[in-house]
Amino acid sequence: MAIKKTIITKDKIVSMYMNYVLDHSEKPKSVYHFTKLNDFTEAEFYIFFGTIESIEKEIFKMFIEKTVELLHKNKEYEMYDMKSKMLSFYFTFFEILTANRSYVVLVLKEHNNQLKKLMQLSGLRSSFKNFLTEIISDDFRTQQEKLQNFQEKTFQETSWIQLLLTLKFWLDDSSPSFEKTDIYIEKSVKVTFELMNIAPIDSLIDFGKFIFKEKIYNK
């Protein structure tokens, strides 16, 4: 009796790719090599991906999409204000990253070239900006019309930089359960939303002290 071949899906390819990278500490040399090793065809690969590099981008995009999916499963989430939604996003997103930390650390720390690293995160950036558009409230838009100093696009770009800085902090965090990253998230999100309300001084000073202490005493 013939053995039924496993149906190849996007998720299966992603799982195979992450396992390959973790087992070999490098990405596959070619699509041919990757598909032959995993017993499926190049034609099946190209149904879902155009290049090996496109898998890397898709993985980080999937991390965001899984985060948003989990957030919407919480019935109370829709009642949260913007700040609470952002905090929920961060804590959920970094839980997912932590569950895949070996892979994330390996692929991000291998790139000394910051441009290549940012290119790998392009899918994450696009999905994150979609999330930000989703959580911006009418009250926020009305407030910014009056203040005219914190436009929606500025909010998106500032939040993206904040996410990258948080990711960098998490990559370097060696505290138990990454508790220092949790503190970083709480303080940085608080600063962001107080800046939007033009009342940042106390939180900005507190956040600055935290970062200064981490850099000085953890060298």
Rank of each mutant, 00 (worst) to 15 (best):
K29G: 15
H33E: 14
Y32W: 02
D39A: 02
E44A: 15
I47Q: 13
P28D: 13
M18I: 15
F48H: 14
F34K: 10
H33C: 01
Y17N: 06
L37A: 11
P28F: 13
L22T: 02
Y17I: 11
I47D: 02
I47H: 08
Y17E: 01
D23S: 15
P28T: 13
G50C: 07
Y46A: 01
T35K: 00
N19V: 03
Y46K: 12
H24R: 10
F34L: 07
K29L: 09
G50Q: 14
H24Y: 15
S30H: 11
F34P: 01
N38S: 06
L37N: 08
S25F: 13
K29V: 13
V21T: 09
K29R: 12
S25P: 00
A43C: 07
L37I: 02
N38Q: 11
K29F: 12
F34W: 09
I47A: 02
D39T: 04
L22S: 08
E42M: 12
P28Q: 13
F49M: 04
V31W: 08
T35G: 03
I47E: 10
K27P: 05
E26M: 14
F40M: 05
G50D: 15
N19C: 06
Y17L: 10
N19G: 00
I47K: 14
S25W: 07
A43N: 09
A43T: 12
N38C: 11
L37Q: 14
F34S: 07
V31E: 08
S30L: 08
E42T: 10
K27Y: 11
T35D: 11
M18L: 13
F49K: 05
F48Y: 14
D39Q: 04
K36E: 12
P28Y: 11
N19S: 12
S25G: 02
F40D: 03
I47F: 01
E44P: 00
D39H: 06
Y32R: 14
N19I: 06
L22V: 13
Y20P: 04
T41H: 06
I47P: 00
N19T: 02
Y46V: 03
V31Y: 10
E44D: 12
